[in-house]
Amino acid sequence: MDNRLEKIVQVLQENAGATYEEFRGELHIFIHAEQIVDVLTYLQDEHAFTLLSVLTAVDYWPQENPRFHVIYQLTSLTQNMFIQLRVPVNASQPRVPTATGVFDVANWREREVADMFGIEFEGHPDPRRILMPEDWDGHPLRRDYPLGYEEPQFSFNFEEIDLRKPYVKE
């Protein structure tokens, strides 16, 4: 990998106990949940990673420890560098400190992750649901949430689905 990125990885390994892996030329660094805000501040101030491109999560159910990985992708415009941070989160305590103090975009992106996965971001100024209706139950992007697939109506089961479907008469 790039030697500028190597230096960053070394610093993070020494100070934050981070591990890393590479895949198809990309660098993924694993950070613990408590240190993510410090790492983001360090990268933004010292190495000019000013753009937070992606803030999302992946669910590895039925694996419980860790169940989620929260993913941050940072871009440095001046140095044209990209780096991906992954925060493993357990199923029993899905909590990560909020990054809204560092990047303003985290406000909406963390609301989206909390809505879709149920991960709580401590200290978030506005924890409301963003994409689903306010009174929705459940977190849709979890792997144990059903897709909500409805049986398609072909000609062989036309009448029986017709009777079940809630048509509006007036």
Partner: peptide, 12 residues
């Protein structure tokens, strides 16, 4: 207030 066109593409 967004979410009125949420289509669930990522899950689908």
């Amino acid at each position: 207030d967004i979410g009125y066109l949420h289509t669930g593409v990522e899950k689908n």
